[in-house]
Structures are given as structure tokens and as C-alpha cells.
Amino acid sequence: MIAKIVRFFGDEEHAKRRRKLLYAILLVVVAADFLVPREHGDFFWDDLPGWGAFYGFISCGLIVYVSKFLGHQGGLMVDEDHYD
């Protein structure tokens, strides 16, 4: 059972079904965020439905590209024998 679930996420043959599942989940998550009741929040974005999805995606992109930029252009990533 465990092995089956893990294989679903690993094996190449399930790639298409994984993709479909992901988009279905994303749709449900955004739809749910529009439907749930909201109390008035501390900040303006707390009242915007879909904020989590938007901010999560932006954060992910920023983290990946800013870090890689710092690593490559900022000179933080160096050869493994740097200290030898």
C-alpha cells in the first residue's frame, strides 16, 4: 500500500495523472478560498480571496530566482574545494 502510493509519485508512467491531480487540487483550493467566510483581518490582503495562492506562487518564484542570482552573480556558490 505504502509502496504503491510512493510509486504513484515516482514512476514516469503516472506523470500525466499526477499533473491532472495537481491542477484539480489547485482549482479546489482556490474555489474553497472564495467560498469560506472571512472575518475582517488585520491587513487589507486578509480580505482578498485567492491571496494565499497568489502570494505563495510569487514567493516561490522570488525565492528560487533571487537565491540563484545571489549564488551565481553574487559569488556565494563556489567550487567544493574552495577551502582546501
Binding site: L26, V29, A32, D33, G52, A53, Y55, G56, F57, G61
Partner: peptide, 11 residues
Amino acid sequence: SLGILMFTLLG
């Protein structure tokens, strides 16, 4: 929370 996490997955 799920929005943040699942759209990180999309990213």
C-alpha cells in the same frame, strides 16, 4: 495556508 502551499508546489 493551502493556497500558499499548493501554489508553491505549482511554482
